[in-house]
Design a protein around this nucleic acid. Structure first.
Lengths: 346, 346
DNA sequence: CCAATATTTGTAACCGCTTACATACTCAAG
DNA sequence: CTTGAGTATGTAAGCGGTTACAAATATTGG
């Protein structure tokens, strides 16, 4: 119980060798440079006294912590959210075998608060995996000035010089539009996410661009903002139907809004998909279990996380080239054709 | 871009003072010991060059990392699990204001793998928050020998000298039994969790002890193991009914098994709660949304996490006394009386 | 048996910071 | 003008490792 504090000197003394020899013995790469007899003695005593090297000292000399920081916004329900659960799962599964660990970095959404100094001061990690950057980094240039390599997941902004991993939301919007259009839908309403979402903008733009090419223009009062929220979408449905009672389809920019829309439609006696088709975006876990199972555009968040992590770890391990770490890796989006959107041309 | 590497010496040189003065200026506690004029110069240059102190060096001198390790089992779906989401939420919310951060420590379930040395070697954290300890720590004594204070969440084992935060599962079992008994139920089946679960054992023991006092003994073939799994419980229902078709209630040792049981009962035309009452354990998020809303024993996992974190941080900040850090903090369980269990004495 | 070479070990500088202690400087009171 | 108490700053010794380089020892071949 009275475990006197051990360090490499004490152990060296007990074994009767120099600290250099101990250091060699405990590090796999240098272990073979120690005579096997010495090794045996060292191992025995290390085990006996329960010596473990001090990681802070190691970090200091090696200038590496073998830890990456995972930046999440600090929000009450964040760990109950599908999106972040996927990211956690992806990051940890990918990191597990690499010897890296991760530290959670929760940042409050205070525009302008995080300047270069504040943020860097608190941490010492080898790299950063950032989600929803725009929520806390008011000044985009900060990201480029970070003192460690960063990978940003989603929310691609081409004006930022950093490494992004995301999907083509614009294309996703087009795919959704194509699916509805080719199923015969012409009068369509859109449930939009909040203004702050860069991704939302692309989803809508892609959707409208496709339809425009087909000669269809959605009236602006049929594009209603529901902030990505289930209950807001729920509340907007009747307003939409007042604007145009004859719509045959709704494009919701995320699944949550699709759920809200369908829930309300059911309540007022309108069937989905028989009367109105609904298509979502994201492919959340609930989408498949929903009634009706939701047709949606799948965003592979888990894969985004694993690919981003791979990119970062790979750079960390091989950045001898000192190349700047930037670029955009795009993973495919995909239509998941379930039951909530049907062909009405028959 | 060519950010030459800065350290406290370089900055001291640029400002024209000694490193001690810089150190005082950048640490809130010692800042007042620096003349205000000097302070101004220092702040300006620090900002200009974007200097940030090296945390590894700080950790080394201060012998503290302001980081705690959160130990989870490494399982594929861990971040999608309610249980762990609650813990993540509790820990992070409680930690946020304290200046501590947390690092995820995922441990593979390999009995006997983690001995004292292996585990400690990889980490340098000020303390540890441990979940499901028995999955990776084969040798109980390891926990007591850890070189940092540990808090163990749930799975209380009185033979281990450590600090636990948990609930009284035995009492929970009794409460469940009382609820069924006083609602008139006498013929009851039990869906049990897996053998490795210490908590499961207590739940069942409490349940049986209560009934035994009332003169009721549950036949052993009415206590069937379903490993905490929804689909296993689903599959066991008919076997139970074959053993005793006249049971009026089922005690499931967790909610998942209750869900499975009810799902199967519905399918074979038996109504819950009209024909058979079912009571669960845990009060998962889905319990309230289930059809029928599940009567269950609530385990406040989120609170377990926050209380455990408080305990740990508090100890870390005030352990001048050098007292050993052990004890058992028990939070109350509680009957959540919803619709899946009814009174049949009427 | 000795020189040449390979293997093993030790010495000491360094990583970037904190802080006890020493020193220098201010300024009011005697 | 001294003296003494603050106040402001500097010096240097750790904290616990890694590693280049030097030194000692072992091995090999002629």
């Amino acid at each position: 119980m009275k475990t006197e504090k051990l360090n490499i000197y004490k152990i060296a003394q007990k074994v009767g060798v120099s600290i250099a020899t101990i250091s060699r013995a405990i590090n796999p790469e240098t272990r073979k440079r120690v005579a096997s007899g010495t090794l045996k003695k060292i191992d025995k005593l290390i085990h006996k006294y329960g010596y473990t090297p001090n990681l802070a000292a190691k970090n200091l000399t090696l200038a590496s912590t073998k830890t990456i920081g995972l930046v999440f916004p600090y929000l009450p329900g964040i760990f109950y959210s599908n999106y972040y659960n996927h990211i956690l799962a992806g990051v940890s599964n990918c990191l597990y075998e690499t010897g890296y660990q991760f530290k959670m970095l929760l940042l409050k959404e205070e525009k302008g608060k995080w300047d270069n100094y504040d943020f860097k001061a608190g941490e010492r990690v080898d790299g950063l995996l950032i989600t929803h950057w725009f929520k806390y980094f008011n000044d985009k240039s900060i990201i480029g000035k970070m003192n460690v390599p960063c990978v940003i997941i989603n929310d691609i902004d081409k004006t930022i010089k950093a490494q992004f991993v995301g999907v083509d939301h614009y294309l996703g919007g087009q795919i959704a539009a194509n699916h509805l259009y080719s199923s015969g839908h012409r009068r369509i309403a859109v449930l939009s996410g909040p203004d702050w979402s860069i991704d939302n903008k692309y989803r809508i733009n892609g959707f409208r661009a496709f339809l425009k090419k087909k000669g269809i223009v959605i009236k602006s009062d049929l594009i209603v903002k529901a902030d990505y929220l289930e209950h807001v979408a729920y509340g907007e449905i009747e307003k939409i139907l007042k604007v145009d009672p004859k719509i045959t389809a709704i494009f919701a920019c995320n699944d949550q809004m699709a759920f809200g829309a369908i829930r309300r439609l059911k309540e007022i006696g309108i069937s989905c998909p028989d009367d109105i088709s609904v298509i979502g975006f994201d492919d959340e876990i609930e989408a498949a279990k929903f009634d009706p199972p939701l047709t949606t555009i799948r965003v592979p968040i888990y894969d985004l996380a694993t690919e981003g992590t791979k990119l970062l770890v790979n750079y960390l391990q091989n950045n001898t080239s000192k190349k700047p770490f930037r670029g955009i890796l795009t993973l495919p989006v995909q239509l998941v054709d379930r039951k909530s959107a049907i062909n009405i041309t028959a």
